[in-house]
Design a protein around this nucleic acid. Structure first.
Length: 355
DNA sequence: ACAATGGTCC
DNA sequence: ACTCGGACCATTGTA
C-alpha cells in the first residue's frame, strides 16, 4: 500500500478503512479521522504495526524538519549563530514569545530530542548557564490564595507534588510512589485551570469516579485555591478584566457570554492569566535587573535566552561563580512573595548539559 | 494564501 | 459537547 505517511487524511483512510482499526475520534474542524499521538498510542496495542511505525516516523520527521533543517538554515553565515526575535506584545498573558526561529520550544524530552538541545554549544572559552524558577506558577498561586498547606510546604522546601499525593490519596509522606506523584502533579497543574474529572481521568489513566473523588478531596484540603478561583472570576465579571501582580491587565469580554462554553473558556483565562502573567512579570523584572548588573559590574558574560521560567547565559570562563551568585540573588529576591522563590541552576558546554 | 492537522516547548 | 493556560511552525490540501 503506497500512501503519503505525512498526510493525516491519507493515513486516516489507511488505518480506519483499509486496516479496519477502531476509530478513536474525529478531528475538530473537518470531522475527519483523528490520527494524533494519543490515537496512535492506543492503536499500537493492536497487532498491526502501522500505528507504532507512524509514531516513530512522526517523531523523527518533526525533529528533522522543524529543528535540524530549519535551524541550520537560519544560522547567520557571518556569526554562525542563530538569532531569534523576542516579541513583547504577542502573548495575552504578558509572556514573551520567540519567533524566526522559536527558541522557546527546542526539544528536551526523548533521547533524540535531547540530542537537538545538545547542539546549542557555548563559544570557546565559555559555558552555558541555565537558571530556572522552581515551581514558579504554583508559588504564585500559593501567594495569591494564601493556601496554608502549599505555603507551609514551600517554606519548608518540601516537594509540592508529593504533598498533594499524600493528601488526596491518604498516605504518609514516604509512602508516596512515583505513580502517585505523577497523578498529583497532573492534578496540581490541571485543577487550578479548571480541568474537569473527564480530562483528569484521561490524562492520568484512572476512572472518572476516581478522578471526581480526587478533585473533591483536593478542594477539601485547599479551600484557598477555590476561593482564589472565585475571586478572579468575580473580578473579571465586575471590572471586565483581571490583573497580574504588577498590574498588567487582560480584558475578558466573553466573561458574561450567553454561551456557556465560551463563558467557561473566559473563566479559565480569568483564573490562569494572573498566575501565568505574574510569573512573566517576575522574570521580566529580574531580567532588567540582571542586565543592569551585567553592565555595571563589567561582566563579559551575556544573557542569551528566556524560556518563560528559565534564563540562559553564555558565561565567560572565570565568571561562573560570580554570575551564578548574582543571577540567583536577582531572581530569588526580585519581588518578594508570601512564599520564597527558588532557582535551580546547571551549567555545561551545551544546553542539554546545563539542565 | 489560507485552513486544518499535528507536534514541540513552558 | 463536556473543560487546564500560553505560544510557533511544518506539512498537506484547497482556493
Amino acid at each position: 500500500m503506497v500512501f503519503n505517511i505525512q498526510s493525516p487524511k491519507q493515513l486516516g483512510h489507511v488505518l480506519f478503512e483499509k486496516l479496519q482499526l477502531p476509530v478513536q475520534g474525529k478531528t475538530a474542524k473537518a470531522g475527519g479521522f483523528s490520527t494524533d499521538v494519543k490515537v496512535l498510542k492506543k492503536l499500537s496495542a493492536f497487532p498491526q504495526k502501522t500505528p507504532g511505525l507512524v509514531l516513530r516516523y512522526r517523531t523523527l520527521a518533526k525533529l528533522k524538519s522543524t529543528y535540524l533543517d530549519a535551524l541550520v538554515r537560519m544560522a547567520d553565515p557571518d556569526t554562525e549563530r542563530i538569532h531569534t526575535s523576542f516579541n513583547q506584545t504577542v502573548a495575552a498573558t504578558g509572556r514573551l514569545s520567540s519567533s524566526n526561529p522559536n527558541l522557546q520550544n527546542i526539544p528536551i524530552r526523548g533521547v533524540e530530542g535531547r540530542e537537538i538541545r545538545r547542539g546549542f554549544i557555548a563559544e570557546e572559552g565559555c559555558v552555558l548557564l541555565s537558571a530556572d524558577y522552581s515551581q514558579v506558577e504554583l508559588r504564585v498561586l500559593a501567594h495569591y490564595s494564601g493556601d496554608e498547606p502549599f505555603t507551609r510546604a514551600f517554606e519548608r522546601g518540601e516537594d509540592i507534588h508529593s504533598l498533594t499525593a499524600g493528601e488526596i490519596l491518604g498516605v504518609e509522606r514516604g509512602g508516596v510512589t512515583p505513580e502517585m506523584r505523577r497523578i498529583a502533579k497532573a492534578i496540581n497543574f490541571g485543577i487550578v485551570y479548571g480541568m474537569g474529572p473527564q480530562k483528569l481521568s484521561e490524562e492520568v489513566g484512572i476512572g472518572a469516579k476516581e478522578a471526581r473523588l480526587y478533585i473533591s478531596s483536593y478542594y477539601e484540603k485547599h479551600k484557598g485555591v477555590e476561593e482564589y478561583k472565585n475571586e478572579m472570576i468575580k473580578m473579571a465579571r465586575e471590572k471586565g478584566y483581571v490583573t497580574t501582580l504588577l498590574n498588567r491587565r487582560r480584558y475578558l469580554p466573553d466573561i458574561l457570554h450567553e454561551n456557556r462554553v465560551i463563558r467557561a473558556e473566559a473563566e479559565r483565562m480569568a483564573v490562569n492569566t494572573p498566575i501565568q502573567g505574574t510569573a512573566a512579570d517576575l522574570i521580566k523584572l529580574a531580567m532588567i535587573r540582571i542586565a543592569g548588573r551585567l553592565g555595571k559590574e563589567n561582566f563579559n558574560s551575556r544573557m542569551l535566552l528566556q524560556v518563560h521560567d528559565e534564563l540562559v547565559f553564555e558565561v565567560v570562563n572565570g565568571e561562573l561563580d560570580a554570575l551564578k551568585h548574582m543571577v540567583r540573588e536577582e531572581m530569588e529576591t526580585v519581588y518578594p512573595l508570601k512564599v520564597p522563590l527558588k532557582v535551580d541552576m546547571g551549567h555545561g558546554k551545551n544546553w542539554g548539559e546545563a539542565h
